[in-house]
């Protein structure tokens, strides 16, 4: 009897796995439900600054669902443009990350085994210093009387300093710089596993190096490319710090809009609606990432 019961009781494994899952459920999944709820509330001057959805008057329960926040997002072109330009910036920055990161990952994976770890360490080493400090350093490089402009003037290439800081170009530079390790590491993990004999076989069969690359290496690294691209693109859509510090006043990104709604306008319901719409936009990429990461990211992220 007890033996039969035990089949239905959770075993020791569950006791180990359950607490972290419960933690993530409580502090990661439930908050989205609450954000969804608050996105249907009204703003009010109080603490917390939103109205309750349900109301008990006498014996009747009234549930008020206010869709005005979402209608507001639809009507005000600021939000639509912000989503669009965030997606655009994310896609273009991811493309450049791939363009820069792929050769680096490829070169590291072809190094002798002993030097690979040193090379990988050099890739992640900058992330150990503060992210804000590195962005601050880029501001110092790109500003009008910064290192880059002074150098170019000294070379005589330009007479007037180029306006780079506070333009979209600065934002692209910042994002590609900051997210490059997230592209290189999954790509490296993939590329390092490739069997060199496949390339040799391709050469034997008469492939030129670039043909062998296009027909063998590139298709084999597809999963790594997707994992790396998602690891860059999804967080960049909601990026706040880089556009705030390096972009101009007109560099529209949705993370910045959400921040302003929350901290400057104190409009929590609209901020929640902005977050929920962003989440809906990102669900498909997150699912693609989840699918590929189980295969690809299992390597090193440190």
């Amino acid at each position: 009897m007890i033996a039969r019961l035990r089949r239905y009781l959770p075993d020791g494994k569950w006791a180990v796995i359950a607490p972290p899952y419960f933690w993530m459920l409580l502090f990661f999944a439930v908050p989205f439900a609450i954000a969804l709820k608050i996105s249907f509330a009204n703003i009010q001057i109080a603490m917390p600054p939103y109205t309750s959805l349900t109301e008990w008057v006498g014996d009747t329960l009234t549930v008020k669902v206010n869709v005005a926040n979402y209608l507001f997002l639809l009507r005000d072109s600021l939000y639509f443009n912000a989503y669009l330009s965030s997606l655009k910036i994310a896609v273009i920055a991811t493309f450049f990350c791939l363009l820069v990161g792929y050769p680096i990952a490829y070169a590291i994976s072809r190094l002798p085994t002993a030097s690979r770890n040193t090379a990988l360490m050099l890739v992640v080493l900058p992330s150990w210093t503060s992210f804000l400090i590195r962005i601050y350093a880029w501001i110092g490089i790109l500003k009008n009387n910064g290192l880059l402009n002074n150098f170019l003037i000294w070379l005589g290439v330009i007479d007037e300093p180029l306006q780079i800081l506070h333009t979209p170009i600065a934002v692209y530079i910042g994002i590609v710089y900051a997210y490059l390790p997230f592209m290189i590491l999954p790509l490296y993990t993939n590329l390092v596993k490739h069997d060199n004999r496949l390339l040799e076989a391709a050469y034997d069969l008469g492939c030129r190096p670039w043909q062998a690359f296009l027909k063998v290496t590139l298709p084999l690294s597809k999963a790594g490319i997707i994992a790396g691209s998602m690891l860059v693109m999804i967080p960049v859509v909601g990026e706040f710090v880089i556009p705030e510090l390096m972009g101009g006043a007109d560099t529209l990104m949705i993370g910045r809009v959400l921040w302003q709604e929350f901290f400057n306008n104190r409009d929590w319901p609209v901020a929640s609606a902005v977050a929920i719409v962003m989440l809906i936009l990102l669900i498909v990429p997150i699912m693609i990432f989840h699918h590929y990461q189980s295969k690809e990211l299992e390597g090193r992220l440190t």
Binding site: P31, I34, M230, L231, I234, P235, G238, A271, L297
Partner: peptide, 19 residues
């Protein structure tokens, strides 16, 4: 378990505060 890896920080921050 892997969704927090890529979730934009503004979303995570806002929703956990609301919690």
């Amino acid at each position: 378990m892997t969704a927090p890896l890529v979730m934009p920080e503004v979303i995570t921050g806002l929703s956990i505060l609301l919690l």
